[in-house]
């Protein structure tokens, strides 16, 4: 592995204690992220990818809470960190961008206040200095006439522009890690491309690591260094972006890839994964995917562990008894 380790999530479990029962939204999730690396966290709705992001931010709301595992940022344990210490990290070392730019900015506050407050929450900068930094941040994300825009309200911006503002806010304190929760999903395709490009450029320039949460494999294809596929609260496959997309090892990943229309032959019926994502309150015994899996066998009644697949140096792992890529043969 290149670079040095920034984030190590190990055995993370975030459960929601609802009246109907315990929802294991994130159940034993582990991954590592190096500085400057981009991780694509892929999965269907309800697979736990967003909750994984919120867990890292310390923003899991009751009735949910982290019940186990560890999240280490630059070696510092975040699970169980006192509220004030966590607040000091949020927006400073770890920043987050949300899905719907129409909803993330406060509609009744001017952009300048929404930006400067993010600076002043973490540094003893003066109002004027904070404003200057806010202005520079708007320039960096490509917003024209930033001085006028600072005095504007969110409703005076288009969706794409609002997302740029949100990105500018996330980047204000030069965080080590940015968690982007489907930030392009709500945008037009043309704007999506621009925002993707912008994010790629900005994170590369600032050296920040990026976790890009999405349900859309085509989005991460050109962006991520590594991909982690989540299903029912667990990571089922991890590996480099190129490897996973070229030869998925988990039947679920294969299913996701087959569901992308452009990969299907013209005129052919779109392939889809049969069945529905299971309820997190009533997961099947063993492998959570086995009811929908074409390769499921008797062995699948026992929950599979994360095991290395493919060439040893590729660093790929999959949670499957019958992977599409053979398990790594350990050299004696």
């Amino acid at each position: 592995m290149r670079g040095n380790l920034l984030l190590a999530v190990d055995g993370l479990r975030t459960h929601f204690f609802t009246r109907a029962g315990v929802v294991k939204a994130v159940d034993d999730v582990s991954f590592k992220l190096n500085r400057g690396e981009v991780l694509g966290l892929v999965g269907e709705s309800g697979s736990g990818k967003s909750i994984t992001g919120y867990s890292i931010m310390g923003l899991v709301d009751p009735p949910g809470r982290i019940v186990g595992g560890s999240i280490r940022l630059s070696g510092r344990e975040l699970v169980g960190l006192p509220q004030e210490a966590m607040r000091a990290l949020r927006g400073n070392r770890v920043a987050m961008i949300f899905q719907d730019p129409m909803m993330t900015l406060n509609p009744v506050m001017r952009i300048d206040r929404q930006m400067t407050e993010a600076i002043l929450a973490h540094a003893d900068a003066g109002e004027a200095a904070a404003r200057a930094r806010a202005r520079d941040a708007l320039v960096a994300v490509g917003i024209p006439s930033p001085d006028e825009r600072l005095a504007a309200y969110p409703h005076q911006f288009s969706g794409g522009m609002r997302q740029r503002v949100a990105i500018a806010i996330a980047l204000l304190n030069r965080p080590d890690l940015i968690i982007a929760d489907e930030p392009t999903t709500a945008l037009d395709v043309t704007i999506q491309g621009q925002i993707l490009y912008e994010m790629q450029k900005l994170t590369r320039d600032s050296g920040a690591s990026l976790i890009w949460i999405t349900h859309d494999l085509s989005v991460v294809a050109g962006l991520a260094d590594r991909i982690a596929v989540m299903y029912a609260g667990r990571i089922v496959e991890q590996g480099s972006c190129a490897d996973v997309l070229a030869a998925p090892a988990h039947p679920y990943t294969q299913g996701l890839l087959d569901s992308v229309p452009s990969r299907n032959p013209r005129g052919a019926r779109l392939r889809q994964i049969p069945g529905m994502a299971p309820s997190l309150m009533a997961l099947p015994e063993g492998c959570a995917f086995r009811d929908r899996c074409p390769r499921a066998g008797r062995a699948c009644a026992i929950a599979p562990e994360m095991e290395a697949v493919g060439a040893a140096e590729a660093g790929r792992a999959v949670r499957c008894h019958h992977p599409l890529v053979p398990h790594t043969v350990e050299d004696a």
Binding site: A88, G91, F98, E117, A121, I169
Partner: peptide
Amino acid sequence: DYVKFARAKGLSNAR
């Protein structure tokens, strides 16, 4: 979302 985003900026609860 704007409340969650405000918290994600690291603002104090009071703010």
